[in-house]
Amino acid sequence: MTNFAAIANNGLWKNNPGIVQLLGLCPLLAVTNSTVNAIGLGLATMVVLLASNITVSMIRTKVTKEIRIPVFVMVIAAFVTCIELLMNAYTYELYLNLGIFIPLIVTNCIIIGRAEAFAAKNTVKAAAFDGLMMGLGFGLVLLILGMVREVLGAGTLFASMDLLLGDWAKQLEIVVYQSDHKLLLAVLPPGAFLVMGFLIAAKNAIDKALESRSKPAVILEPINHNEQT
């Protein structure tokens, strides 16, 4: 029996690929300069992860140990190609924005890591759920980074969401502040590292606070001297 709650906790919090395992940092830091880019890459990674986990789990009894890595990579590459072509067809501008980072999903360690560590050893149902949760955990980190950096560096939130969602999404844009001089650093690579550092610190701080709260309170029981004497 598989413990779905544990898988969800692993993917979203305890073993979050973005801020705990620190996998896939290159796309994570490179494309999160706006919310729409972050969501775009997050969704693409999630879909690839889900599909590759399901496929790897289905073929896990047929593939021998010696050739498993090349097979996994081919499976992942096939799905990435599908996603790339789909994005090219339906969200062309976003596809141009993300550029090389879509084909590079193939090399994202999260995907091959989950295929090897989880999908190759578990049932299809559990593997699918794991892929979904890991993808969601990664996507959420991307989303938070993208939002923070967009607000700091461009003064807007959810700008040009129409690239992903169609024309109606143009209304989603919120102007947080308006100025001739914006904190340009936030949308440049150093800003990604700084915001990421703060995210990891926040996660560790929350963990520490939770740990100290859940620790059983030590109750000092008065020693009953009468009993001994």
Partner: peptide, 10 residues
Amino acid sequence: VLLLISFPVL
């Protein structure tokens, strides 16, 4: 450097 990169005009 933070200021120079962020606000080059100023």
